[in-house]
């Protein structure tokens, strides 16, 4: 009955192969590069990339209702490097400018030749409550 076993084996390999191929092409098509602010500045003009940084407190400018918002983010490792962001879309509730707790930001979009990062995706994460409480406690 070896041939039957072989048949099942071949069937299994075909299915797994099909899934792997599907995944391989899907990765190639949907891969998005993920940079820090410094890396982004070095890289220069690029389309469809992700950048992570922290909001520079005080730079957040809201236009009229429904207009893009503008802000700057900086690199925690190299604080002199900042990136100017123009974001169109719904602003997440976690995106709050608080000088005491710099909010971590991830934006996705295009880095234009004029140095503006035009974002159409924005994710913001407050440092977790626990950490903030701990650092506050440590500071006391």
């Amino acid at each position: 009955m070896e041939s039957k076993k072989l048949k099942f084996l071949v069937g299994g390999v075909v299915i797994i192969g099909a899934i792997a191929t599907l995944a391989f092409f899907a990765v190639r098509e949907n891969m998005v590069y993920y940079y820090t602010v410094t890396e982004m500045l070095d890289k220069g003009q690029s389309a469809n990339v992700r950048v992570a940084g922290d909001l520079v407190s005080g730079t957040l400018v809201k236009g009229r209702v429904g207009e893009p918002i503008e802000f700057e983010i900086y690199d925690k490792e190299a604080t002199e490097n900042t990136l100017f962001i123009e974001y169109t879309g719904a602003v997440p509730d976690t995106f709050v400018d608080d000088p005491n707790q710099p909010v971590e930001v991830v934006v996705e979009g295009d880095y234009l030749s004029d140095g503006t990062f035009a974002a159409d995706f924005l994710m913001a994460k407050c440092p977790s409550k626990y950490e903030s409480a701990e650092s506050a406690a440590a500071g006391k």
């Binding site: 899907a26 949907n30 998005v32 993920y34 940079y35």
Partner: peptide, 8 residues
């Protein structure tokens, strides 16, 4: 550093 989003 790369990432794949929901479309993947």
């Amino acid at each position: 550093k790369v990432t794949v989003g929901p479309p993947f």
